[in-house]
Design a protein around this nucleic acid. Sequence first.
RNA 1: GCCCUGGUGGUGGAACUGGUAGACACGCAGGACUUAAAAUCCUGUGGGCCGCAACGCCCGUGCGGGUUCGAUUCCCGCCUGGGGCACCA
Length: 916
Amino acid sequence: MEYQFRAIEKKWQAVWNEQKAYQVSNESDKPKFYVLDMFPYPSGAGLHVGHPLGYIASDIYSRFKRLKGFNVLHPMGYDAFGLPAEQYAIEHGVHPLKSTHGNIDNFRKQLDNIGFSYDWDREVRTCDASYYKWTQWIFLQLFNSYFDRSSAKAKSISALVSIFDTEGNSNHICPSDAQLKFTAANWKAFSEKEQQDILMQYRLAFCGYGEVNWCEVLGTVLANDEVVNGFSERGGHPVEKKRLRQWYLRITEYADRLLTGLDTIQFSDAMKEMQSNWIGKSYGAEIDFAIHNYDGALKVYTTRPDTVFGVDFMVVAPEHALIENITPDTHKASVAEYIAYVKSRSERERIAEKKITGCFTGAYVVNPFNQKLIPIWISEYVLAGYGTGAIMAVPCGDDRDFKFAQHFNIPITNIIGEAFDGIEANPTKEAVLTNSDFLNGVVQKDAIAIVNDKIEAMGIGQRKVNFRMRDAAFSRQRYWGEPFPIKWINGIAYPLSENELPLLLPEVDNYGPGPDGQGPLANIESWVSDNYETNTMPGYAGSSWYFLRYMDPHNTGAFCDRKVSDYWNQVDLYIGGTEHAVGHLLYSRLWTKVLFDLGHIGFDEPFKKLLNQGMIQGSSRFVYRKRGTHTYVSAGLIGNYEVDQLHVDVNMVDGLELDTAAFKKWKPDFVNAEFILEDGKYICGVEVEKMSKSKFNTVNPDDLVERYGADTFRMYEMFLGPVEQSKPWDTKGIEGVHRFLKKFWRMFFDEMKGKVWVDEPATAAELKILHKAIKKIEEDTERYSFNTAVSTFMICINELYDLGCHKKEVLSQVLILLTPYAPHFAEELWKVLGNEGLVINAAYPLFEAKYVLETSKEYPISINGKVRTNIAIALDATEAQVHEIVLGSEAVQKWIEGKEIKKLIFVKGKMVNIVL
RNA sequence: GCCCUGGUGGUGGAACUGGUAGACACGCAGGACUUAAAAUCCUGUGGGCCGCAACGCCCGUGCGGGUUCGAUUCCCGCCUGGGGCACCA
């Protein structure tokens, strides 16, 4: 009987399906384990071999935990709202729902091919009304909450209203506008509109005007993490700053908790680093500099108060509110001209050019410590949105300030002696201060606290923590997203009540933008006359909480029953790529914290452990065309010709050798191709690049499953290398894994003799091999080292094969070990051996040390650190006995040759080293 | 510029806490079986030296130093691939 992998795989997939073998219950005596994949956006391109890498790893781990006796939740779904489907709709007039469903069906087929153990009854799609009803519901929780700073928790907005009623806002600084102050009496006197406008400035989901990333081509606003160097992440279109009415999430209030929460979860250092950089917490001080001949002060933010005696000028952002008031008439014209110039430049031009520009206002501040007059400049390198939009410039210590001073010939004060060479700024904190009055002789980092104390004592400033992170833009001027459950009446946002949800996404005639930068929903008369919000939510809305819905996907009364979320609790293992570091992974952490604060769930970090799979890169192949001809030159010979390099489909190349017949058929251009060969072969060029259709280096998993089977494919993806590492795809090596499975198969069936497995007791040698494998494979799987686990299978089978082992007792156990990796193969042979039930429900073999005990060991004997020979010594030998045996050995004597032995190091069970 | 990662044979990689570097595969070379091919099996395979071979020796984990009886592993300085952030004061 031959190993007919395709027949076996289809057969068992049908059986598992029929028996609902992967259905998971929310009630069980077993310990729970939650393994989650980052659900895919179902694009039209389908899966390539890079996508399933993480899915296979998570599937292996889930199946492993299941065999180990856990109740394992392992669901899958689709992140189905989003831009590409809508762009497709605009271009082809196809409803996004229709193309999305088509893509999902295709994804599902591809996923099913690989034999995953998902509980498909729990599938979620973010675009289903039954799902986005709850996305809207959670939005309302955010809308109806504010962040109470004293307890650092979200609380109901109605609680805030009662506080305002009794004490005004004196104990609750407005996060949007710290200047806003009112008493209880004021509050009661406000109109409804005024009250609501104030509350809006406290809500966790709020609407306001702000500078946003506007993408003209996409016709929508984008979040900061969706913009890369001034271009949209999707599509690469230019992005401009624009002032628009937008919804936001007040994520900045959670900055501290998002930061400290990182200590409680297992993310890679790189991932934590990315998140904390994004949050960008910095400790500094705000200092008021009195403005000369003007009643007022310029407030600056600095992390380096120690350098206050080195301030040579101040710089304010071009948008700074004080400019108009402090600029004397003599300078009004040049300031106006400069501001006009800044406005004429786009965000991208500023970033790309990095020109030093600026303008003197004609105004001065007074340094509070030495009464020196300091000129106030305007420059675009100071950002209005960070700190106070104004800085104190210290050219000897800051590179940008130094360059600015040089460019405008501003004299530089040196306060760090020889640490400053006059050629470039030195940002050190270790230098001893000079020219700094009461700070002279103090090391800079110690001076920070001294100055901070002083400014607080003088009442001209205070310590201040700043965050780089901005509130997250939460609305899109698009069609294909969740509608906001909000009605606007007389400029007041009224939330829908819970029983009005879901607010269904209406049908539109065209997907183009509405008037005045509004979304397509603004084109619908009834929608507008019902006063509904015309924006929709961004792509990250649905993905911020999907892991909760899997727990209780059919609940119509709640997003997830509290008892159920208490049972499943955090995701124990979350697998996905690093590309979501500052988007999805930050937003879902935020939503979890808010839901926790409001008492809807019992944990405030969603993911206990995150494993990032590496990217599988494409290995591109090239042909070389002699310029202006149809002649193609083999890679080894191109030095002799002037050639152009062309991508060729990697699937037409065997290793490096091009299938020239297939190439001619590939595209009409190549029909008449002629080849200059080397050794009768056309050899292609190779380069590792990102896997993409346009580079013809994608490999479809379906093809490999068809040729080698799902089990081979699964094991090969793991065998490629550590999951976390990026590596190029190379189909060639898949043969090795396939050979392994065929070899394993032959331990059950021989081509000539048929059935060869036997029901005989195992020998000590066989049990030793088995238990060595149990230990290693269990440990490797547990630490996600799937590649070494696969090689351990190979070693185990090679050794058993060499012993001629065909025993059911041994083989059954190995099959269980293999189940997470090659489930179809294991299931088939499990049945063949006549075992009861399904192998996917078997109990994981128990490692027993007694089978692998050794009595002696081949010790490597090194002399001065170099291994010279091996000697077998009993493991229970005493150190004295070892000395005797080693020194008595002929091979060792030869090396010692009468030299004096300084030392003999014996590490039991490891090695012996003789030092001469 | 700053931060995080990685650098080991022709290739993918192994060596988990300092203890026989190159496991397991791919590829390649040779051989067996076969009319032939596929499949399968066996042998060899880091580089170099002693004429071949055995035995053996030297070198070798990006480069240069250091700690140690012993370093791919720890420390210092550099080179380099990949990723992230980038006027954040």
